[in-house]
């Protein structure tokens, strides 16, 4: 029990810091570049993504274990995962719209974007590859979401400050954001070797 808890905790920390989805694994770059102009919107995007990631981890683990592996249908993995993710996002959107208009106002516009966020499909595909059990998978999804939120919020903070900086005209927008991301990736390299599973 204690040993299991330790493994789960390490998976969590390693996904948030050492193997950060955006800065180390290059998953979810599009929203990272597109929705990182303001801290507030970046945070909402991160929250919505974390929510969907945790649910996706649970749903795809169940489908993979009880349908794809049980009936030996590995060739339907990509097709079924993307359907699950798309329907899940749709469902979450409907649910939030009905139950909490305030939350819907904050997250609503980001939800459709999440379907084509490659971090979500990447997460779903990494779980069978890593051979995690159900609980570890859910924690992995949560950790990936928090790591995503951390990176996108930090980037938004930098870009807000950058508004006052004197950036050369040709580097404005995407180029300077990419270069900043490079510097952040270097900083995150400091976490490598921090945790051994």
């Amino acid at each position: 029990m204690v040993e299991e808890f330790r493994v789960v905790l390490l998976v969590f920390l390693s996904t948030v810091l050492v193997n950060n989805f955006i800065l180390v694994k290059f998953l979810g770059i599009c929203p990272f570049l597109g929705v990182s102009k303001q801290v507030e919107t970046a945070f909402s995007m991160g929250l919505a993504t974390t929510f969907v990631m945790t649910l996706t981890a649970a749903a795809t683990w169940l489908i993979n274990t009880y349908i794809l592996v049980a009936f030996n249908l590995p060739f339907l993995r990509y097709v079924s995962f993307i359907i699950v993710i798309a329907s899940l996002v749709q469902f979450v959107e409907m649910f939030i719209r009905k139950s909490s208009p305030v939350l819907y106002k904050a997250l609503g516009i980001f939800l459709p974007l999440i379907t084509t966020n490659c971090a979500i499909l990447g997460l779903a595909l990494l779980i069978p590859l890593n051979g995690y059990n159900f609980i570890t998978s859910v924690v992995f999804g949560l950790g990936a979401g928090i790591g995503f939120t951390l990176a996108i919020v930090l980037m938004a903070g930098l870009r807000e400050k950058l508004e006052f900086g004197d950036v050369p005209e040709v580097l404005k927008g995407v180029p300077i954001t990419l270069i900043l991301a490079g510097l952040m990736a270097m900083a995150f390299m400091g976490f490598s070797g921090l945790i051994s599973i």
Binding site: P168, V174, P175, L178, I179, A185, M186
Partner: peptide, 15 residues
């Protein structure tokens, strides 16, 4: 490494 990927693409787009 990842950092080099970001930086070189940034410079390329700038160029």
């Amino acid at each position: 490494l990842p950092a080099g990927a970001f930086i070189s693409l940034g410079i390329l787009v700038g160029l």
